[in-house]
Amino acid sequence: MAGIAHLSDIHFGAHDPKIVAATEAWLQARQPDLVIVSGDFTQRARLGQFRAASAYINRLRAAGHRLLVVPGNHDVPLYDVVRRFAAPLRRYKRFISSDLCPWFENDEIAVLGINTARSLTIKDGRINHEQIALMKRRFAAVSPTKTRILVTHHPLFAMPIGKGGELSEAVGRHEEAVQGACEAGVHLALAGHFHRTYAEAARKMAEKAGSALIIQAGTATSTRLRNAEPQSFNWLQVRRNDRCALQVVAWNGTSFQDGDRVAFEFDGRQWNAHKGAGA
């Protein structure tokens, strides 16, 4: 069984240092096989913010954690127009990672990260044809017994973002991206962006959505909360390619506390949830 900690939207520059330290303590105690950070390392892509985010990432690596990271739209400068269009991810590459399509594979899982942050879209994301082709090519070489996991900052699907049932905009080239994920045999699609935790079978969200399980992470350390959700991240335990258990690890004001465990099982067509069951 593979243990994955999925953090997102850590937003250095609008972060709580006490909560940042608490994530490090939790990770050190749990020792996941992989730590995923799905974008928005900074609040406004400023130099000091990237330096603080880099120090955090370096501490995690020094503690022995394996990381897979992708940038978010907040890691592209908003107000520095020249840098935004001439070198939108230069600071991200310098301080966080030069690899915009990171890959991790062990005996149980294969994980691909794809950058969806763009200069022109401001807050929305986009996937291009080359990235879709890469997705299919990388996962095609993976053993069918392994769990294939795709990581983006922006979710592939329109997501519920409010109590009234309103939906977000889907990532650019949504239909092609979803088709590519289907052809690549993606089992889990992890993302962030909306500071909201969410998990659902793709087939229950849209027609022709394929068989992936869609999992969203909230903000791990930002003070900019939405929908009254506390800071949180996801703890995933993956067994084979048809079993996955999810716990939302939420900040209670003094520490991170494990939430209820929800097990998902793939029945050959879609993922089904079983609250409280094991993976």
Rank of each mutant, 00 (worst) to 15 (best):
A170K: 04
F85T: 10
M1F: 11
D242P: 04
A245N: 01
Q216L: 14
A206N: 12
Q216D: 10
Y198T: 02
I149Q: 12
A206K: 12
D99A: 10
A201R: 03
F194K: 09
T121S: 12
R243I: 02
E207M: 14
I10G: 06
Y92A: 02
A86I: 12
F95A: 07
R83G: 10
A2N: 14
H6C: 06
Q31P: 01
L134F: 08
T42H: 09
A263E: 07
A206T: 12
G125Q: 05
V238E: 00
A5K: 06
C182G: 06
G210K: 06
H154N: 14
G218H: 05
G278N: 11
C182P: 00
E200G: 09
A206M: 15
S119A: 11
A220I: 08
I215N: 08
L47A: 14
T219I: 04
P17T: 05
A117K: 01
R243Q: 13
R61Y: 05
I149T: 14
N227R: 14
G39P: 10
G113M: 05
R224W: 10
H193I: 09
P155A: 08
L213M: 06
A86L: 15
A133Q: 13
V171D: 02
E265T: 10
W235T: 09
G162Q: 05
L188P: 08
A87P: 04
R240S: 15
L112Y: 05
S168K: 04
T116D: 00
H74I: 02
A273Y: 08
G210W: 09
R137A: 13
F139Q: 00
T221P: 00
E105K: 01
R269C: 11
G185F: 09
R226Q: 11
G192W: 01
A52I: 09
A201Y: 00
T223Q: 15
A212E: 10
I4H: 06
A62E: 12
A14K: 15
